[in-house]
C-alpha cells in the first residue's frame, strides 16, 4: 500500500523563483492496483511519481510504502528504492551497455545478487517484454525504437519491483508499438500481481487498462476515482486541459439525443455491445 499524507513539493523554495509543484496531496493506493495518472504538462505528475519512487524528497508531508515511512530515521532508503521501479520518459535514451543482456543486468548487478540470480532475472525480464534470447547478445543500439524501449523497461523489471511506475511509456511510438508495450504491461500486472502506476496523456489507453485514475491539476489532486466514474466528468476534465475518450463523448451525445444508452461507457467494445443490444432489442 502506498500512502501519501499532505505531500508538498516546492522548487527553489525561499527564492524569487519559488514554485509549488505539488500541493497537499493525500492519496492511498492499494497493492496490486492498476492506477492511471493524468494531468496536463506542469500539473505535478512527474514530481509526484519521483517522490513515490524515492528520488525526490517531499518538502513536507509523509510517504509510506507498506507501512514504512520514507526518509524516516529507521528507513533503509536503498532497500525502499528497490521496491519501486520507475521507467522514465524515453527510457531508451538511457541504454548504454555493449549488449542487451548487460544492459538489463545492470540494475540487478547493483543489487548485489549472485551471477545465477542475475542471469535468471535477465531472461525472465526479457521474456516478459517479448525480447527474444537471440537479441540478448546484440548491441542495444542495433534494435528498433520499440525494441529499445522494451529493453529499457526490462532493465527496471529485472530488479523485480513491487511497484512499477511508467511515465508515458508509449510516447512517440506508432499504434502497433503502443499496443505491444501496453499489452506486455497488462500481462505483467496480471502475472506478477504488482502495483502499476501508468502516467499517460492517452485517455483511450487509460480507459482500456486502469482500475482507478488520479487526476492532477496545477499541483493539486483534482480527482481520484474508479475509471468509469472519472470519465463521467467530461466537462471538468476539459476545463483542466484533459479530455475523455472519443467513444465516451459519442455515448454522452447519444444520451442527450434520447438514445437509451447506459452511463459510464469508456471503451469501443463496451459501446458496441450496448448499442447492439439496444438496436437489436428494438428490432424484435
Amino acid at each position: 500500500m502506498i500512502k501519501l499524507s499532505d505531500i508538498c513539493y516546492t522548487y527553489m523554495s525561499d527564492g524569487p523563483f519559488e514554485k509549488a509543484a505539488v500541493k497537499n496531496v493525500n492519496l492511498t493506493l492499494n497493492s496490486g492496483e492498476f492506477i492511471g495518472l493524468m494531468g496536463h504538462t506542469g500539473s505535478g505528475k512527474s514530481t509526484l511519481i519521483q517522490m513515490i519512487a524515492g528520488i525526490v524528497k517531499p518538502t513536507s508531508g509523509k510517504i509510506a510504502i507498506d507501512g514504512q515511512e520514507l526518509y524516516a530515521k529507521n528507513c533503509d532508503m536503498r532497500k525502499m528504492r528497490f521496491k519501486t521501479g520507475l521507467v522514465m520518459q524515453y527510457p531508451e535514451y538511457q541504454l548504454f551497455e555493449e549488449t542487451v543482456f548487460k544492459d538489463i543486468a545492470f540494475g540487478p548487478s547493483n543489487m548485489g545478487l549472485s551471477e545465477d540470480e542475475i542471469k535468471r532475472r535477465v531472461f525472465f525480464a526479457a521474456n516478459l517484454v517479448g525480447i527474444g534470447d537471440e537479441l540478448l547478445e546484440k548491441s542495444p543500439f542495433e534494435l528498433s525504437g520499440g525494441q529499445k524501449r522494451r529493453v529499457a523497461i526490462a532493465g527496471v523489471l529485472a530488479m523485480e519491483p513491487e511497484i512499477l511506475i511508467l511515465d508515458e511509456p508509449t510516447a512517440g511510438l506508432d499504434p502497433a508499438g503502443r499496443d505491444e508495450i501496453l499489452c506486455k504491461i497488462k500481462d505483467m500486472h496480471q502475472r506478477l500481481g504488482i502495483t502499476v502506476i501508468l502516467v499517460s496523456h492517452s485517455m483511450e489507453d487509460l480507459a482500456n487498462l486502469t482500475d482507478r485514475i488520479v487526476v492532477m491539476n496545477h499541483g493539486e489532486l483534482a480527482m481520484f476515482d474508479k475509471t468509469a466514474e472519472i470519465f463521467k466528468h467530461s466537462e471538468e476534465l476539459k476545463r483542466i486541459g484533459l479530455s475523455v475518450p472519443q467513444i465516451t463523448e459519442v455515448c454522452s451525445r447519444l444520451s442527450e439525443a434520447g438514445f437509451p444508452i447506459a452511463e459510464g461507457i469508456y471503451t469501443v467494445e463496451m459501446a458496441r455491445a450496448e448499442i447492439e443490444r439496444i438496436l437489436k432489442s428494438e428490432k424484435s
Partner: peptide, 20 residues
Amino acid sequence: IGLDVPQTTELCFLLKKSGL
C-alpha cells in the same frame, strides 16, 4: 499494417460486422 482508425469509425465498423 499497424495503424489505427478513429474510435467512431471502429465502432461503426464493429456494428456493421454485427449485422446492423
